[in-house]
Simulated scan of single mutants.
Amino acid sequence: MSTPGRTVVVGFGGVCRGDDAAGIEVVRLLRGTLPPQVALVENRGDAAELIESWSGADLAVVVDAVRSGAPPGTVHRCHALAPGAGRHLGSHGLGLRDAVELARALGRLPRRLLIVGIEGADFTLGAAMTPAVRRAAGALADELAERFTRPAPKAEGPAEGRSP
């Protein structure tokens, strides 16, 4: 379980089904690049494990492969705390969407939940990730690394010798 105030990035998907590995690939690319308060989790499609991984988190970012008809490698973002949000995200029959609704019913959603879908093309068992999806996963990993390693802005205080 995540510690309150922490961030968790979850790669959701199957590593043996081509582009379905996009979320797992993002997490693997992030290993060793993020501060310790950002947990990285690889999830092979287990909804209960997903709920456990984000419970108590301040922010959960879940990355999954999607099929919406957009060009392969397209990145979709959805803030998923509104009921019904993310309805079309995810390539799993029982998985991400169901985990969000179950966590809502159990009161186990993170404070903020961002679902990021990478549009896939080939979900065939044994296939390799397609080049467009691999590029999108790399770009997303770079974006997340930048976001979570950027120093917090300094609070501006009164100038020396002047009263507030």
Rank of each mutant, 00 (worst) to 15 (best):
S2E: 02
V9H: 01
G11K: 01
G13F: 07
G14D: 13
G14I: 10
R17S: 12
I24L: 15
E25L: 14
V27Y: 10
R31S: 11
R31P: 03
G32I: 08
T33G: 09
P35C: 08
V38R: 00
A39N: 08
N43E: 12
A48E: 15
E49K: 09
L50Q: 03
S55F: 03
L59E: 02
L59H: 00
A60E: 04
V62K: 05
V63M: 06
V63N: 05
D64F: 07
D64H: 04
V66I: 13
V66A: 08
R67C: 11
S68D: 12
S68V: 10
S68E: 14
A70P: 03
T74A: 10
T74I: 05
C78Y: 08
C78P: 09
A80K: 02
A82L: 13
A82I: 10
P83L: 04
G86K: 03
H88C: 11
H88L: 13
H88M: 12
H88T: 14
S91C: 13
S91M: 09
H92G: 03
L94Y: 15
G95D: 01
G95N: 04
G95K: 03
R97I: 12
A99V: 06
L106W: 11
G107D: 08
G107K: 10
P110A: 03
R112F: 10
L113E: 00
L114F: 05
G120E: 04
G120Q: 05
G120V: 08
A121Y: 06
A127E: 06
L140C: 04
A141P: 04
A141D: 04
D142Y: 02
E143G: 05
L144W: 00
A145P: 00
A145S: 11
E146V: 14
F148H: 12
F148A: 07
T149L: 08
A152P: 07
P153W: 13
K154T: 15
P158I: 07
E160W: 13
